[in-house]
Design a protein around this nucleic acid. Sequence first.
DNA 1: CCAGCCGCTGAACGTGTGTTTAGGCTTATG
DNA 2: CATAAGCCTAAACACACGTTCAGCGGCTGG
Lengths: 231, 231
Amino acid sequence: MNVRSADDLTTRARIRDAAVLRFARSGFGATVRTIAADAGVSPALVIHHFGSKDTLHAACDEHVLAWIAETKRQNMGRATSGGLLEVLAQQDELAPLMGYVLRSLQAGGSVGKAFVEHMIDDAEKYTAEAVEQGIAKPSRDERARVRYLVMASLGSLLLSVTLDPPEDPEDVNATVRRYTADFYLPMLELFTEGFLTSRRMLDDYLLYVGDPPSAHRADGEEAPSADDPAA
Amino acid sequence: MNVRSADDLTTRARIRDAAVLRFARSGFGATVRTIAADAGVSPALVIHHFGSKDTLHAACDEHVLAWIAETKRQNMGRATSGGLLEVLAQQDELAPLMGYVLRSLQAGGSVGKAFVEHMIDDAEKYTAEAVEQGIAKPSRDERARVRYLVMASLGSLLLSVTLDPPEDPEDVNATVRRYTADFYLPMLELFTEGFLTSRRMLDDYLLYVGDPPSAHRADGEEAPSADDPAA
DNA sequence: CCAGCCGCTGAACGTGTGTTTAGGCTTATG
DNA sequence: CATAAGCCTAAACACACGTTCAGCGGCTGG
């Protein structure tokens, strides 16, 4: 009998790791042949171990997801909403996996989705603490704010990577660093000073929609008729 | 002689339009055969008119780019940084083209790049006006702020679309509407009230980097030395 | 020492792709 | 009416892909 699920130090694991790396580097359109070459095996062996390319993809997803959970557990509390990304990409060894996450975000894969949800959950917790400690201002809709902040951070990072990808696709590190260098000041500025001088737009909008603290899922219907919120 | 470049009301134009629509709907991996079927012609004719799929793609890019320029010219001044997207997606006829832009953003194509640059340029102008009129607060680095705001807006929208795409891929309208409904309040809140209660993080950062108004490309100068008013 | 098994491979298959080729149909022109 | 030219198509080609298949080789158990 050989190892099957628990501890794989085997060729199967080597193939999976090569696939993660290759997917991160070249996207999910990467060829089975390429992955096999990376792992130093024949294409047939890849299929023999995983059954199909889709199954391999799923295995990679699962693996990266597990890695995310692990990293989260280790760095509990060290990362803040905005800082998590840097923590993740800081260690060079973890950079490829971060690249994989970005690819999944780009492709709308399950890993990307789960990653966003994780980040939102974490950020919600940290933000609540920050509000409690008087560091952050309270929001009319904490969940919505956190969702927005995470989506904006992740989205702008993703867009940066997509629009001018690093020469060495493996070096997500450099990209995140550049992203931080470019956007940290305006982000901080916006976070401490805001952007608008008057409250008019906000008050008008609140008046218009009726100021509900939350119009999200998880509570029944009667959403404030989302016809044309902009005017 | 037939028309070649100036006025195409011809089959060639029909193919191009079908391609734009299909690319927007299914991404740039869409088949030549599918595009041909959409246009009601044979696959061979597509190649006959455009030479190759890549050339067709380029023609679509060019066409959409021209459309963007046109729309910009028509809606000069009506759109603000945040509102431009809605203006673009508002008209149902333009929605497909907006979908094309999103696809190009997702794939890192030239149209996406150009679109972002256009939006940044516009936003910079509108922001400058807003600052001048006292509506918006001035920034330590206007260009960086505008870049950040545009990247965050576009990125979060792109991420929204990618993570849970609309059932009908053609209906970018609905997506943008949902995006607005979800994020308008937290965005407005952040823009008017900020997020942090104290200036410490910002001041610390400014102290750390030496408070240059701009450490970007395009100026090789050094910033007015690091004695900043904050402390 | 032998038998059997298991990891593994080279070569092939089937499919879907972009593209090419040869020719048909319609239309304008002498 | 005959001829030539353009728009267009069916069929095929070349290639890359995921996947299958038959079999090799070294290891282990008896």
